[in-house]
Simulated assay, not measured.
Amino acid sequence: MHLYSVLRLGLHVALITGMGFLLSQCGNSSAEKSRMDEAPVEEEIRYEAIRVAASRPASELNLPGELESYYETDLYPRVSSYVKALHVDIGDQVRKGQVLAELEAPELTANLTEAYSKVKAAEAVYGASKGIFLRVLRTSRTLGAISPVDLETARTKAISDSLGVVAANAHYSSVQQLVSYLKITAPFTGVITDRRLSPGAFVGPGGQNGVPMLKIKQLDRLRLRIAVPEAYLGDIRRGNPVQFSVRSFPNQTFTGRINRIANSVRPETRSELVEIDFQNKGGKLKPGMFASVRLPVSSSREGSLYVPKSAVISTLDQTFVQKVVAGKAVRVSVQKGDDSAGQMQIFGDLKAGDVILKTASEDLADRAPVKTQLVSR
């Protein structure tokens, strides 16, 4: 029992000593933390600033565009008929005037034969009446042999029958034209890009008239359409060379020329449609490809100032930039101009070389002191 009491007393003393040590350490940490909190911490905030530029920094625009065929069309049948034969398929190169498909319509062939027979009949009737008129005319030269009424009747009959021949020929020509529609020919040189029907299909009114038989596109000449922002329309000139690239050939640059300008600004996009012609020798590029166009533009505009969009703030009261004057951020009212390529054209009490905050802040009061560092645009 005596040994047990001694051990218990030693354990009790050790616990008290350990707790004292921990309390002393906590006290030291608290004191140290208190001294750190009391020490002044000086934080310095520096705002990025830039110089106002008197010209647009970009000398060219990168605009998206899409290549299109110079000519492309869907070929439909013009008369009710059946597809007799198709001489081409997808991917075939064709020449202008080449027969692409043949149709058959037996009733049209019968109508053509009938019209031809009517022409021959009209010609025979006219030949007879003409012969009668000529004989009457010769006989009338003998005084009293033919009355004037008979002569005039023969003349009228000959003229009437001649007009019958003209009418029969006109009808025959119209039927002949309809028969010619049974052969589908290529309207221009190009390539067949789609085929929808097969031999035996009924086409024309009452059939599959809503489906084109073939689609043909021109490949040796393409047009590239781009929408040019209104701010750069002064740089667009017909005939100017333009370079572009496509994803299929990332390491190559192609050159075309501006050939058509819409001369009308679209109000919804504030842009104008411009078409670039490209001579696609060898058919390397295909219609439907997306292109990235590099459009040269003037690098300066006299009397215009340009700043990043982030430097301009618009509130209910004013639109302003924050100009740095003697270490203070001074609000300068401006008016917005052209907005493109991440730059904003502004008009106001500023000049080229003035220093403004690159990213304006509405939290900064007017003439609030700021520390800045100049950065590139």
Rank of each mutant, 00 (worst) to 15 (best):
T17S: 08
L61H: 11
L108K: 02
Q25A: 05
M213T: 13
T255K: 04
E68Q: 08
T17D: 03
S80G: 12
A227L: 14
D277G: 01
S333M: 00
S300W: 01
Q176Y: 00
K217W: 03
L214M: 05
G127W: 02
L143R: 13
V370N: 09
A124F: 07
S299A: 12
F278Y: 14
A53M: 01
L285K: 03
Q373N: 08
V99Q: 13
S173N: 12
G353I: 03
S173Y: 02
D194A: 15
D339R: 01
F254T: 04
N259E: 05
L233F: 11
E114A: 04
D338W: 02
M19A: 15
A326D: 12
K33M: 14
I90W: 05
V324C: 02
R138W: 09
T315P: 00
T359P: 04
E230M: 11
L9H: 12
L214R: 08
A101Y: 03
K217I: 03
L134V: 12
N240Q: 14
T315N: 05
L11T: 13
L219V: 10
S248V: 10
E32D: 13
L197H: 11
F347T: 01
K33G: 02
V13R: 10
I16T: 07
K358D: 06
G327R: 11
V355I: 15
G204E: 12
F244S: 00
L137C: 00
S310C: 02
E107Q: 06
L305P: 11
S310I: 00
D277A: 07
E60H: 14
S147V: 05
P287D: 12
T359N: 11
V175Q: 01
G206V: 13
V334N: 01
V94C: 05
R155Q: 05
E44Q: 15
G190Y: 13
R238L: 15
G288D: 10
S292V: 04
R257Y: 13
R260Q: 09
R257G: 00
R367P: 06
S340G: 01
R78Q: 14
I236E: 11
S140L: 04
V274Y: 06
D339A: 09
L163M: 13
N209F: 08
P308F: 09
S264G: 03
A352Q: 03
Q322W: 05
Q243G: 02
A167P: 09
V274G: 08
R367N: 10
V166I: 12
G127I: 02
E68P: 08
M289Y: 08
S245C: 01
P187F: 06
G200P: 14
T253E: 12
A311T: 06
G210F: 06
A291Q: 07
R35D: 08
A14P: 03
N169K: 10
D317T: 15
V228N: 11
Q345D: 03
V166S: 01
E60G: 13
A49P: 10
R221T: 10
Q252C: 04
Y172Q: 08
G206M: 04
A168R: 10
L134C: 05
R141K: 15
V370F: 05
Y306Q: 05
G65S: 10
S361L: 14
R78G: 10
Y126H: 02
Y232H: 12
S140Y: 12
V203K: 11
D366H: 12
L182V: 06
